[in-house]
Nucleic acid binder design. Structure first.
Lengths: 132, 132
DNA sequence: TTACATGCAAAATGTTTGCAAAATC
DNA sequence: GATTTTGCAAACATTTTGCATGTAA
């Protein structure tokens, strides 16, 4: 029997969450760190990482996988996908979902029990596509 | 004007490529390193990384993005996607493609010039789904 | 004989962890 | 007061890089 540890909504945790919710993009851990440092100058990067993990595990945040090397975080929990600018790294939301029966279809092809999928588009964002 | 550097197919490079082509899975850099070390005991990890990058840039290998933390390599260049076992890390091929006009559709929604997408499934592989 | 390739080790990058002190319930 | 959270710094995992030496055309 696993004992669920109690989680406290500390000021640090709340500020981290607020900053992500305020952000329009999908910040990385170090971007969150920089944002949060304005109101909590003595916070450490480790604390940011720990809180991002806790908030993700609690289902309050979503951890993005867009194929880049850095992890990004999203406050928007609804089912949606992302598009990554290959030039500047910006990430936006896009609403595009596979057919609902994809998981069964794929499962029957390869023998896996499919639990989800990762769909991320790549391209040039509006700003970068107009740059030469 | 960019000068394309000449590439030589050295023994090291050839052995790395052969080992990946022999492999059934989708090895990571350190797995390739271990495989190659059997015939080239003095090869260094750095050389493996450099050659994997060169082979990928040349279009001889494909670099996989499955959302995990490690990069994997694939000799199969045909358009196909991957499925990752969340328990043991195994990666298999699956043939599933989005509609050919997805890129235009997505582009017109979000203003990006879409150049590609990353689609990877997740689940439990046949072995792991039968484990308790 | 001039590039390109290699081994080695150090550096860079992104993330996690151990621990004593501090904050929270 | 017991337990969680924090700051700090060190550890960690993966990948990249600098440089002197080696090798192939």
């Amino acid at each position: 029997m696993e004992q669920q540890t109690e989680r406290r909504m500390t000021r640090h945790r709340q500020v981290i969450l607020d900053e992500i919710r305020k952000s329009t993009g999908h910040p990385t851990a170090s971007e969150v760190y920089e944002m949060v440092r304005k109101s909590l100058p003595r916070i450490s990067l480790g604390t940011v990482y720990r809180n991002l993990q806790i908030l993700s595990e609690s289902g309050i945040l979503r951890t993005l996988e867009t194929g880049g090397s850095k992890r990004r975080f999203d406050w928007n929990l609804s089912g949606h996908n992302h598009i990554l600018c290959v030039r500047c790294g910006r990430v936006d939301d896009v609403g595009y979902d596979l057919k609902p029966d994809v998981e069964e279809t794929i499962g029957s092809i390869c023998g896996y029990k499919v639990t989800g999928y990762l769909l991320a588009f790549k391209g040039l964002c509006p700003k970068c596509r107009n740059m030469r």
